[in-house]
Design a protein around this nucleic acid. Sequence first.
DNA 1: TGCATTTGTTATAATCTATACCCATTCGGG
DNA 2: CCCGAATGGGTATAGATTATAACAAATGCA
Lengths: 154, 154
Amino acid sequence: MGEDQITAPSTITDAALRPFVGFNLKRAWNVIHADLSQTLEPLGLRMITFSALVLIGENPGLSQAQLAAALSVERPNLVAVTDELSAKGLVSRNRLPADRRAYALQLTGTGARLLAQASEAVHAHEARLYAALSVDERRILRAALTKIETAPRG
Amino acid sequence: MGEDQITAPSTITDAALRPFVGFNLKRAWNVIHADLSQTLEPLGLRMITFSALVLIGENPGLSQAQLAAALSVERPNLVAVTDELSAKGLVSRNRLPADRRAYALQLTGTGARLLAQASEAVHAHEARLYAALSVDERRILRAALTKIETAPRG
DNA sequence: TGCATTTGTTATAATCTATACCCATTCGGG
DNA sequence: CCCGAATGGGTATAGATTATAACAAATGCA
């Protein structure tokens, strides 16, 4: 009838956390983030600078405020990004004649070439990371993620 | 034949970033993270402290090293978590007689009650955030996330 | 003209994460 | 039994990310 001796469990289980979608999604994001960062690192890019390059290439001439909004980043936090891209000669910042407050962001030739190279690397990264997913699974995954993104907030 | 005047585009598009699964997943994670933090805040919990409570409840007596591994957190970063849970009287830290280096972490009565309350709130948060997903979509989403988590890394 | 707004920017703070190092304790091989 | 390696908890610290306040220059509107 003695008290049970306190001992540490020999194996730890996740089972109570696994039913939460958010937990699984965070774990998947950790894997993606680590692998993608590693993919971009040899190109001298981070996730945020790669995303910025893509958006500038797709929307040439956009302003930093527009880019910040598109990236869901606060304007002050974008300054370091554009500074970095400009210092590397990947992006040009020209004052707009029509609005001398704003910069028109454009890819340089070097920037366009690095973007093409980085896009290829990121596609390879995704192909490797999602190799186990069928076409249907990928389609449903993307649809589900979009629904979550636009879900009604608390 | 003059040069085109540089002007900022009137609308910005995501289209070049959307094909990347990682981009969609990060956006979804941002939404989940914000909504879940807001859900836990009135209970005095953060994501990491809630997850810790769940794991301690599920694996009573586990050590901090075991908990850190289960949470994918470095041991130094877990100290603030257990300190916080202990200070709030939610978790007890008792030295193991068998190994006086380690703590046996256990929920207190208060901790168990708060965990039940928080679990209910998190389930409600997930029900709301994933309301637009069908049963099949949720199943495939979770399966896909698990496959990503265990995908071969670069 | 005058005033609110916008753009880019600086400074600053909060949070999260990762590494190096420390001490006490435990473990394993000789 | 003894000593070195490994482990558990902890401190200090640095880096990265994110958020807010405030500012000057420029713009737009009443």
